[in-house]
């Protein structure tokens, strides 16, 4: 496992001068993922904040090979790159015989949970040697904070607005990490850039595997979450301590490991309260949603513990 000093020597594949908002989690996630990646990297990226803010022609923040195709096909596109690598290596073209390349696809929650879901599922099932990273900020931020299937219950977004009749998003978020694990691929994990050690270890592990891997990473959006610019990482810690965003990994579809257990689980209110998108939930008539979310989180945490063999 790399120390920060080592990681710092590998830095530089993702540069400053991009146009992500100040304090954007996507920038932190991307930097940590790429710093953990040794060897050559080809990045595929879905349309979304990360892509549109980092490749505004004629500038690019990517100091490594990069391709954006469209919103829903980062996985398929990257699988094509990986297939090309296998083909060209086999045919001894471009001197690739002795080369080492990593293939990393990035997508937001919209480009991953929703519109890119099929493309991702297909690429994982086919077994391409690639790491797919979802930076999950819980909404379509690039187009102005619309709800996605990753948006948490009750969140106020521009297409699940908190109104007089409807108190924000009425559905639970879907647990994509579990769904990808159900592909029985070698490695699936959930991570957070507030825990860089855990995150970079997971990336290193994923890239060491001769097959597909998926890491779902929570990623603060100060604008969409309605939090101050410097609060993102702190909120990630609360997300982990409240078990809203557990850190765990799943090998070969079945072997669950919990990577972090809070000493005392924080109440979900601690996670909701600092964020403007949940403000309305604290009105008396909406508080039942907080209770529902707490129940859901508790059930899920128990399920994870059980699967990891930490509960009988």
């Amino acid at each position: 496992m790399a120390t920060l000093k080592e990681l710092a020597t590998r830095d530089g594949k993702f540069c400053g001068g991009h146009r992500l908002c100040p304090g954007c989690g996507a920038g932190i996630v991307t930097r940590q993922v790429l710093a953990a990646a040794k060897d050559n990297v080809v990045v595929g990226c879905a349309t979304g904040c990360l892509e549109v803010s980092t490749t505004i022609y004629p500038y690019t923040a990517w100091n490594t090979s990069f391709i954006h195709n469209a919103f829903e096909n980062a996985a398929a596109t990257t699988s094509g790159v990986e297939a090309a690598y296998r083909a060209l290596k086999k045919r001894k073209k471009f001197g690739l015989e002795d080369s080492k390349y990593n293939f990393i696809a990035f997508g937001g929650d919209g480009g991953t949970y929703d519109i890119g879901f099929q493309s991702l599922s297909g690429a994982m099932e086919r077994g391409h040697r690639m790491l797919y990273v979802c930076y999950d900020n819980g909404a379509y931020m690039n187009t102005g904070i619309q709800r996605s299937s990753a948006t948490p219950l009750g969140a106020d977004t521009t297409t699940s607005p908190a109104g007089k009749e409807i108190p924000g998003k009425v559905q639970y978020r879907k647990e994509l990490t579990d769904i990808i694990a159900a592909h029985y691929i070698p490695y699936v994990a959930q991570a957070s850039p507030s825990n860089w050690k855990d995150l970079t270890r997971k990336v290193e592990k994923a890239l060491s595997i001769d097959g597909p891997s998926f890491i779902n990473i929570i990623s603060a959006c100060p604008r969409g979450w309605r939090i101050p610019e410097d609060q993102g990482l702190e909120l990630h810690r609360i997300a982990i301590d409240s078990c809203f965003w557990p850190l765990f990994e799943i090998e070969d579809g079945v072997k669950y490991t919990i990577n972090y257990k809070p000493k005392t689980k924080r109440p979900v209110e601690d996670w909701l309260k600092p964020q403007g998108r949940f403000k309305h939930l604290f009105k008396p008539e909406n508080r039942y949603l907080i209770a529902e979310e707490q129940k859901r989180i508790d059930e899920r945490w128990e399920m994870l513990l059980r699967r990891a063999g930490e509960l009988d």
Partner: peptide, 26 residues
């Protein structure tokens, strides 16, 4: 490791200061 803008300069494992051309002041 936490800066979204790669605006903290490190050399030989030591902080050298900020890259104010790219720091957004978050």
């Amino acid at each position: 490791v936490a800066c979204p803008d790669a605006a903290i300069v490190v050399e030989d494992g030591k902080i050298q200061g900020f890259d104010y051309d790219h720091c957004k002041g978050c």
